[in-house]
Nucleic acid binder design. Structure first.
Length: 204
DNA sequence: TGCCAGGCCCTCTTTAGGGCCTT
């Protein structure tokens, strides 16, 4: 594990559906690298899954079958993405979803990654206890984060997740009165029952 | 024919059910 929570890859997949076990594939990857509290690199690409996506996904994402026809194939994009993420830790909003697609796409090309996932959704449920809900768009509005772009596109969602993450890290830093938040603490927050999180931060 | 995602989390729980969140 890279224990530096201030340097990590924030990623978001758009996909043909909810489950790679049912044959769904990634159709777009967007990611940003956060280093020392700032977005320093970006990665974005559509990818052709080799079949037509349905109307719901076209409407939900704005990604059309016409756009995917000329996109590079998944294996090509995922190999480039493996180089992008290196051995950094990873972050996504509802990470279990993006992790299962990353695992599935990497399994197709015999790639692997060494970083560990953090989940902004799980942390938000424990830190932003007054939020009306924990959907990415709701949290961005709730925390007054500037947002000009289209939700449900991979790079925009990754950027918004990164900005949300930095606000939450700042919140945690203030609570523990330290200048950085160890990745180990992030993982502990995500696994701690909500009612015990304030105790965890006080004693850190 | 009938089913059709899955992990997390809460509670009127744990011998379970249902909502949230992602596409």
């Amino acid at each position: 594990m890279n224990n530096n929570a201030n340097s990590l890859i924030v990623l978001d997949f758009e996909t043909s559906g909810l489950s790679p076990d049912n044959g769904d594939r990634a159709i777009e990857i967007g990611a940003v690298k956060i280093e020392n509290g700032k977005i320093t690199e970006k990665f974005q690409s559509l990818m052709n899954p080799g079949f037509r996506i349905n109307n719901f996904i076209e409407n939900y994402t704005g990604i059309t079958n016409h756009m995917l026809q000329s996109a590079p194939p998944c294996h090509e994009v995922m190999n480039d993405f493996a180089d992008f993420i290196g051995d950094d830790n990873l972050l996504a909003h509802n990470a279990s979803f993006d992790k299962k697609f990353l695992d599935a796409e990497f399994s197709h090309i015999a790639q692997c990654y060494s970083g560990e996932f953090a989940c902004s959704l799980l942390v938000s449920r424990r830190i932003n206890t007054n939020a009306p809900n924990h959907q990415l768009g709701t949290l961005v509005n709730f925390m007054n984060i500037a947002s000009e772009g289209n939700f449900h596109r991979a790079l925009f969602d990754a950027e918004m997740t990164a900005k949300l993450w930095l606000v939450m890290l700042d919140n945690i830093q203030q609570q523990i009165n330290q200048s950085s938040v160890p990745f180990e603490l992030i993982q502990k927050i995500a696994k701690t029952p909500k009612k015990n999180v304030s105790d965890l931060l006080e004693k850190w």
